[in-house]
Amino acid sequence: MTIAPAKLTDPTVRAFVTAVNAGDREAFFHVLAPDATMSDDGSDRDLDEWVDREIFGPNGRMDVQSESSGGHALVANFTNETWGEMRTAWRFTVDGGRISRFETGQA
């Protein structure tokens, strides 16, 4: 069962998922802290390069299946034109209404 982005508990994470699904790079970066960091499958990545390669270039989309940790942890079917669909886990660190770090990887 998919959880609609509007139903996600944490408003900052909700804005992140909404921006990804809308292909809205500006809104995506607006929800991130200026010095935000991220990792993919346990390795830190260059944020700008990664989001263009994995999300905005190949039309990435998150279909959230579950949430936990007050909305700061998600399991989602992530789809893009490069890799197709994969089950992914996402963990967010939210500080002052912005995401300072997110970690993703296969679930």
Rank of each mutant, 00 (worst) to 15 (best):
Thr82Met: 03
Thr82Leu: 08
Trp50Arg: 01
Ile99Cys: 07
Gln65Met: 09
Ile55Glu: 01
Met86Glu: 08
Phe92Glu: 03
Glu67Ile: 04
Gln106Asn: 09
Thr88Lys: 08
Asn77His: 10
Gly97Arg: 06
Thr82Glu: 07
Ile55Gly: 00
Asp48Tyr: 07
Phe92Val: 06
Ser69Asn: 15
Val64Ala: 00
Phe102Leu: 08
Leu47Ile: 09
Arg53Glu: 09
Glu49Phe: 05
Arg61Gln: 14
Thr88Leu: 09
Val75Cys: 07
Gln65Trp: 02
Glu67Tyr: 06
Asp95Glu: 15
Asn77Gln: 11
Asn77Arg: 12
Thr88Arg: 08
Trp50Phe: 14
Trp83Met: 05
Phe56Glu: 01
Thr93Pro: 05
Glu49Cys: 05
Thr79Gln: 07
Asp63Pro: 01
Arg61His: 15
Leu47Thr: 10
Ile99Trp: 06
Thr79Ser: 11
Glu85Asp: 09
Glu49His: 12
Val75Ile: 13
Ser100Arg: 15
Asn80Cys: 04
Gly84His: 01
Thr82His: 03
Met62Lys: 03
Arg98Pro: 05
Ala73Val: 13
Leu74Gly: 00
Gln65Pro: 00
Val64Lys: 01
Glu103Pro: 10
Ile55Trp: 00
Leu47Lys: 07
His72Leu: 15
Leu47Phe: 08
Arg98Trp: 11
Trp90Lys: 04
Gly60Phe: 02
Asn59Pro: 02
Arg101Gln: 14
Asp48His: 12
Gly71Arg: 03
Thr88Ser: 12
Glu49Leu: 08
Gly57Tyr: 02
Glu103Val: 14
Gly84Ala: 00
Ser68Val: 13
Ser66Thr: 15
Thr82Asp: 04
Trp50Leu: 01
Asp95Lys: 14
Asn80Lys: 02
Pro58Tyr: 03
Thr79Pro: 01
Ile99Val: 10
Asn77Cys: 07
Phe56Val: 03
Asn59Lys: 15
Ala76Cys: 09
Trp50His: 11
Ala73Ile: 07
Met62His: 05
Gly97Ala: 06
His72Trp: 10
